[in-house]
């Protein structure tokens, strides 16, 4: 086995591995640079965020416009505050827009559904750092069942 061929094959091996790492990083784990692209931040207070996690998607009609950046608890009124980072190219949502926490499918992931409001005169667009006023909490199955049982009990 001559030396040149050995080194050539090891080189091919190394290149293959670099290809695999790139595939795993970019395609599988989605370490894309575009994620750190130009974004602006909006805040939303919910009563209950259910199973929402950091990096969950923010969608308008199914189109991803941003991601959940972080979730923390407001120390004054003890409600969860969700920080949304929205891509800069979608920067013309009116202030009357609302957000709700939705689930994709029956067992799917939770995501933030964003409903753009009406743009009437005198309504400004959302800016970096704004709080969304109109929010709907996650649907918690246990609460629903509890309510259902409670209502049945009253009926009888």
């Amino acid at each position: 086995m001559n030396k040149y061929r050995v080194e050539l094959m090891v080189g091919v091996f190394v290149l293959l591995t670099i290809g695999a790492v790139l595939l795993l990083a970019l395609k599988v784990a989605n370490q894309t640079i575009t994620n750190q692209g130009d974004t602006y931040t909006l805040f939303a207070k919910f009563d209950n965020i259910g199973g929402l996690k950091a990096r969950s998607a923010v969608k308008v009609g199914g189109v991803i416009i941003g991601r959940v950046d972080s979730i923390r608890l407001d120390q004054e009124d003890f409600t969860p505050v969700v920080e949304l980072s929205i891509l800069q190219e979608y920067n013309a949502f009116p202030e009357t827009s609302s957000v709700s926490i939705l689930t994709s499918g029956l067992l799917g992931e939770q995501y933030v559904g964003f409903q753009p409001g009406f743009a009437i005169d005198g309504v400004e667009n959302l800016k970096d750092g704004d709080y969304l006023q109109d929010t709907k909490s996650a649907l918690v199955l246990e609460d629903l069942i509890g309510q259902f049982l409670f209502n049945r009990g009253k009926g009888e």
Partner: peptide
């Protein structure tokens, strides 16, 4: 197939 994989797999934690 790819997008749910991307939102689940974490590079530091899994890879």
């Amino acid at each position: 197939y790819w997008s749910i994989m991307q939102s689940t797999v974490d590079f530091d934690k899994d890879v």
